[in-house]
Design a protein around this nucleic acid. Structure first.
Lengths: 267, 267
DNA sequence: CTGGACTGTACTGTCGACACTAAGCTGCGT
DNA sequence: ACGCAGCTTAGTGTCGACAGTACAGTCCAG
């Protein structure tokens, strides 16, 4: 029993006090923290009961932040105890995360934290790059001046974080920036797909940014992208986004992630 | 009670005998019929219990074929009675369909058959066109000679169906062809996304093909696409696929679908 | 000491029951 | 006649229980 989620047994009320902001109530602040962004990405608000949201957020964050390791069992009984609920909402939460590719569920078998093969990661970035390109084109066409100002402001904040070496702060602001861009793009379908892909890559993007020099390079990429958008050059924005995505993938692969996980992937 | 799903109350064992092939057991035949294709698209096999599969297939097919109308309530109690099960597997099936965009679920409210706005349809086809383009490029690069032969054979069958005016037969073979192409492409992620988009458009594609002359035009498009792939011209294949997708959208819009549903969409 | 069958445990999928809530209906006031 | 408030009903979300199955650990044969 201590096997599955034992590493964090000491945490009794799992999601309170985690992010430094209370989870109860509606956190109406636009400051991107981990929990609010994840809830947004999972499209949980208004769609599910609080109990389900709580579990999905905790498990999802756990996977993204590496607290829950790929392949690890996600015992629904234990999770239900942890959240003082029954297995029904837990199962629902796990199903949500399965659809987002964070959890693997096979009939009659224990749900597990999804394990990405290097191949799969490359696939995701391939698709993601092209779709972000589409977003870039749409944004360059559709963005109002207010939108552009907003993007600029976000970029400024990101630069601050990057200068301060605050990887976590930069990371989630980066996620929020892309979320904002997909909003401006105005294609809900595209946004939904990218959100889903984003979730799968959050784990890796975090690791990627932690690499020396990567933070700086990422900022530079973002600056160029925003500039292209401001100049209404959709094609350039698209290409830059595709390139930036490829660069991120290269950083991940250079980081030795693929070797590390390649040995685990069948375990 | 007769309100929600009453139109088909007479059907007692809903999915047996529907497609002319028994559903029990594993239908190992490669002949694409509605049920097997849907099960494939929903990635249901191996992933869920039979009870869930049964419900998801029936409801999904119902939505695609128009038996269940957009906006219609999907009462989980009634569905559970219909399938002699409890509400748990029904809920799970509906959640699956929700993730595929066929069903809308909001907390504490009755699940409904999803209603597409014309705007949303355009979005889907925009994304779908570009993603199919990516598939086309990948297929042109990756396809083995056997793969090409297989595609040719399928194309031949489709032509037969088209000549015979068999819309339904052509339709599902067309779905299967694109499924096959995404397989050859070798990008599982891309395949998953396109499958999901495919499901959303099945309703419309069917209606689109039913229009006079559309069947013939579609066949011609497919022929050109396969030819480009055989010539290993990925760029051309991509462009043809994008064009064909746009043509399909145009056919749908010309068919007056948008007017019909625009009046319903808030109802 | 190793491989394979067996057994026990623990977890999954399903069910019926229950509290709570949304939606429809009735009857009232205007 | 019309709109609103309260009531009724029907459906959702959750729970604990139960049957069935996968997994791990044990025992035995070789």
């Amino acid at each position: 029993m201590g096997q599955g989620l034992g590493q964090i047994d000491d945490v009794r009320q799992p999601d309170a006090e985690q992010s430094g902001q209370p989870v109860s109530g509606q956190p109406a602040e636009p400051v991107p923290n981990r929990a609010t962004e994840l809830v947004r990405l999972l499209k949980l608000t208004e769609r599910r009961e609080p109990a389900v949201i709580e579990v999905a957020t905790w498990v999802g964050l756990g996977i993204i932040e590496g607290r829950l390791r790929p392949g690890e069992d996600l015992n629904s009984v234990e999770l239900s105890h942890r959240f003082n609920s029954s297995r029904t909402p837990v199962r629902e939460a796990l199903m949500l995360l399965e659809q987002e590719g964070l959890v693997e569920i096979r009939a009659r078998r224990r749900p597990r934290v999804a394990a990405f093969t290097p191949q799969r990661v490359r696939e995701i970035y391939y698709v993601r790059g092209h779709l972000l390109g589409l977003v870039g084109q749409l944004v360059a066409e559709h963005a109002s001046d207010d939108d552009l100002a907003d993007l600029r402001e976000r970029l400024g904040e990101m630069q601050e974080r990057a200068d301060a070496g605050d990887i976590d702060g930069y990371f989630w602001r980066h996620v929020a920036l892309q979320e904002r861009m997909t909003d401006i793009g105005g294609n809900e379908t595209l946004k939904g797909i990218l959100d889903s892909l984003a979730l799968r890559t959050l784990i890796l993007r975090h690791a990627s940014l932690a690499q020396p020099g990567r933070l700086r390079a990422s900022v530079a990429d973002q600056v160029r992208i925003i500039e292209a958008i401001e100049q209404r050059d959709g094609e350039l924005a698209a290409m830059l986004l595709l390139r930036a995505t490829h660069a991120a993938l290269a950083a991940i692969e250079a980081g030795g992630w693929s070797e590390r996980s390649a040995s685990d992937e069948n375990g």
